[in-house]
């Protein structure tokens, strides 16, 4: 029991219509660890989480979570996990406390127990002061914390967090990181997805990089950083279209992206020749976005991390 992986997947495939989202994903996550699935938008992170959390069946491949098959033993998997998705899954028109008590009742806690568990989690996530306010009045960071608390009500063994900090300001992101780090001390397994290498580095024991529906690299954050590169080139774009097209073009070589700041980070070996080759590759003449100077990429070199 102690040695079986908390999450095991092999050969997961999934298509939506003609679009192949997953092309054979293999994963193994040790119990009590934090595992990050790192990749750009559209890499297949959310689909992987949905399959592991039993919400979507895979077209091919097998996965076991907490020792149970995600298709054949779906119900037992569901009893062992919790999922906090990209979109806050709490009711805006209920108060924080009502949301948590409801989750308690739905995870088969009694009335009194649900009440106690709600109080305890509100306290732990620094929401006691806002317990009786409707969630609609919460800030983005408070909402995410409540959302995460709602996922913990039933003492899950494995916690899935799909992009837990996307859209948060830097301070709330920092606060969320502290909260996630705190989860591991309870002995639970955390599986999170992120677009930010920095986040994976901060939180995870192991990281798998996904791109185009495949795991393209896996290892401890330090190993991974060494493997991809010693230095990073940041490209800042003037508009979303340019950002998007270059993001697609760079694909797996992207080590970092920030859609809010239209910035892409790409791995280099630090040599001028490599940087020049990279800039040549995202050739101005090939993409219309570079026609005007205000949309031309600005580059900065930064040491990594």
């Amino acid at each position: 029991m102690a040695h079986r992986p908390a999450i095991e997947a092999s050969g997961l495939e999934k298509s939506y219509g003609a679009v192949k989202v997953l092309r054979g994903v293999d994963l193994s996550v040790a119990p009590g660890s934090v595992f990050a699935l790192l990749g750009p938008n559209g890499a297949g992170k959310t689909t992987t989480v949905r399959i592991l959390a039993t919400l979507t069946p895979p077209d091919a491949g097998r996965a076991r979570v907490a020792g149970f098959d995600v298709v054949a033993d779906r119900r037992r998997v569901r009893r062992a996990i919790s999922l906090t998705g990209q979109y806050a899954a709490v009711d805006e028109m209920q108060t924080g406390e009502e949301n948590l008590r409801m989750m308690g009742r739905l995870t088969r806690l009694g009335r009194v127990e649900s009440h106690g568990r709600a109080r305890e989690l509100l306290e732990r996530f620094d929401l006691t002061g806002a317990a009786r306010r409707t969630v609609g009045t919460y800030s983005g960071g408070m909402r995410r914390r409540l959302d995460l608390a709602a996922g913990l009500v039933g003492h899950p063994e494995v916690i899935f967090l799909d992009e837990p900090t996307t859209g948060l300001d830097p301070r709330s992101r920092q606060a969320m990181w502290e909260v996630v780090k705190g989860l591991v001390t309870d002995g639970v397994t955390v599986f999170l997805t992120t677009q930010y290498l920095e986040e994976a580095d901060q939180l995870a024991d192991r990281v798998a990089v996904v791109d185009g529906g495949r795991v393209v690299a896996e290892g401890a954050p330090a190993e991974l950083k060494e493997r991809v590169a010693g230095q990073r080139l940041d490209l800042v774009f003037g508009d979303v279209a340019a950002y998007g097209s270059v993001a697609r073009q760079l694909g797996v070589r992207l080590v970092w992206s920030d859609a809010d700041r239209l910035t892409l980070g790409v791995a280099t070996d630090g040599s001028a020749a490599h940087v020049r080759a990279l800039l040549d590759e995202i050739d101005p003449s090939a993409a219309p976005w570079t026609a005007s100077p205000c949309t031309a990429p600005r580059s900065t070199m930064s040491s990594w991390p």
């Binding site: 039993t54 779906r74 919790s82 999922l83 806050a88 709490v90 039933g154």
Partner: peptide, 13 residues
Amino acid sequence: AGGIIDRFRSLDI
């Protein structure tokens, strides 16, 4: 439209 249905489903409801 919201995420709450996924949460309910992941609770086996």
